[in-house]
Simulated scan of single mutants.
Amino acid sequence: MMPWLELAKLISQKGHSVSFISSPRNIDRLTQIPTSLSPFLRIVKLPLSPVDGLPPSAEATTDLPPNQVQYLKKSLDLLQQPVTQLLGSLRPDWIFYDFA
């Protein structure tokens, strides 16, 4: 996630609006955003939906052994509607996405 955050910072430094979207625990792992970027860099926490087999504290592949990553993927799939609604309100020009 850190390379994506650094890219978001670079883009926002140029005066572009950036929304960085991830789960709450992942967002909490990020380094502090400089206050000078706060008008341009918005941090958005989207909570994951519970899925059988996914521990409640697991929000990233680093939180899980390889045999449980499938449950994280299922939970992320359930974010389709919230992400669709968020993107509808943001109306972005660009979307950068990465699962792993």
Rank of each mutant, 00 (worst) to 15 (best):
residue 2 M to I: 15
residue 3 P to R: 11
residue 4 W to C: 02
residue 5 L to T: 07
residue 7 L to S: 10
residue 7 L to H: 10
residue 7 L to Q: 11
residue 9 K to P: 08
residue 10 L to I: 08
residue 10 L to C: 14
residue 10 L to G: 15
residue 10 L to T: 13
residue 11 I to Y: 04
residue 11 I to K: 07
residue 12 S to L: 10
residue 12 S to C: 12
residue 12 S to P: 06
residue 14 K to R: 15
residue 15 G to F: 15
residue 16 H to Q: 15
residue 16 H to A: 12
residue 18 V to F: 10
residue 19 S to R: 11
residue 21 I to V: 15
residue 21 I to A: 07
residue 21 I to C: 14
residue 23 S to F: 13
residue 24 P to T: 12
residue 24 P to C: 15
residue 25 R to N: 13
residue 25 R to V: 11
residue 25 R to D: 12
residue 26 N to G: 13
residue 28 D to Q: 12
residue 28 D to S: 10
residue 29 R to C: 10
residue 30 L to A: 09
residue 31 T to F: 12
residue 32 Q to R: 09
residue 33 I to P: 01
residue 35 T to G: 06
residue 35 T to V: 01
residue 36 S to M: 08
residue 36 S to Q: 08
residue 37 L to Y: 09
residue 38 S to T: 09
residue 38 S to L: 07
residue 39 P to Q: 02
residue 39 P to R: 07
residue 39 P to N: 05
residue 39 P to K: 03
residue 40 F to S: 03
residue 41 L to F: 04
residue 43 I to S: 02
residue 44 V to Q: 03
residue 45 K to R: 15
residue 45 K to G: 05
residue 46 L to Y: 05
residue 46 L to A: 01
residue 46 L to P: 09
residue 47 P to G: 07
residue 49 S to Q: 08
residue 49 S to C: 06
residue 49 S to Y: 10
residue 51 V to A: 03
residue 51 V to F: 10
residue 52 D to H: 13
residue 54 L to Y: 03
residue 54 L to D: 00
residue 55 P to L: 02
residue 57 S to A: 02
residue 58 A to T: 01
residue 58 A to H: 00
residue 60 A to M: 13
residue 60 A to Y: 02
residue 60 A to H: 05
residue 62 T to K: 11
residue 62 T to A: 06
residue 63 D to L: 11
residue 63 D to W: 01
residue 63 D to Y: 00
residue 65 P to K: 03
residue 65 P to F: 00
residue 66 P to R: 07
residue 68 Q to P: 02
residue 68 Q to G: 02
residue 70 Q to P: 02
residue 70 Q to E: 10
residue 71 Y to M: 04
residue 73 K to R: 15
residue 75 S to I: 07
residue 76 L to E: 04
residue 77 D to T: 12
residue 77 D to L: 09
residue 77 D to Y: 14
residue 77 D to N: 13
residue 78 L to Q: 12
residue 79 L to E: 02
residue 79 L to D: 04
residue 79 L to S: 07
residue 80 Q to P: 02
residue 80 Q to E: 09
residue 82 P to L: 05
residue 83 V to H: 01
residue 86 L to A: 02
residue 88 G to T: 13
residue 88 G to K: 15
residue 88 G to I: 09
residue 89 S to Q: 14
residue 89 S to N: 14
residue 90 L to E: 07
residue 90 L to A: 08
residue 91 R to L: 13
residue 91 R to M: 13
residue 91 R to Y: 10
residue 93 D to L: 09
residue 93 D to P: 06
residue 94 W to F: 15
residue 94 W to P: 00
residue 95 I to W: 15
residue 95 I to N: 10
residue 95 I to Q: 14
residue 96 F to Q: 03
residue 96 F to M: 08
residue 96 F to D: 01
residue 97 Y to T: 00
residue 97 Y to F: 14
residue 99 F to A: 04
residue 100 A to V: 14
